[in-house]
Amino acid sequence: MPDPNVEHLARLARLDLSEAEKERMRAQLDAILTYIDKLRQLDTEGVEPTSHAIPMVNVMREDEARPCLPAGAMLANAPEREGDFFRVPKIIEE
């Protein structure tokens, strides 16, 4: 039976969950994954995966430079900025 590690997933997804949320999440993921487990009954041996329902290939654009948006427009939504930079708190490695 699947047993997702909620702590690990929350860390990968950068979601701070409270203990109560983790408990609830565990139960809900368990229920959903139990349902999803029915897929195992279906034999998909030798079946190609579909990532696009409408198959297409080779969509490309020509290498032409287009005007950018001014820095002001791009930074207008920034939660914190310094001059024309986005500013972020101290970076720590995990």
Partner: peptide, 15 residues
């Protein structure tokens, strides 16, 4: 389509 120029003012070569 943003240009790839180097050394421009910050966040001026973006979309």
């Amino acid at each position: 389509g943003c240009p790839t120029a180097f050394g421009r003012a910050p966040n001026s070569q973006t979309c």
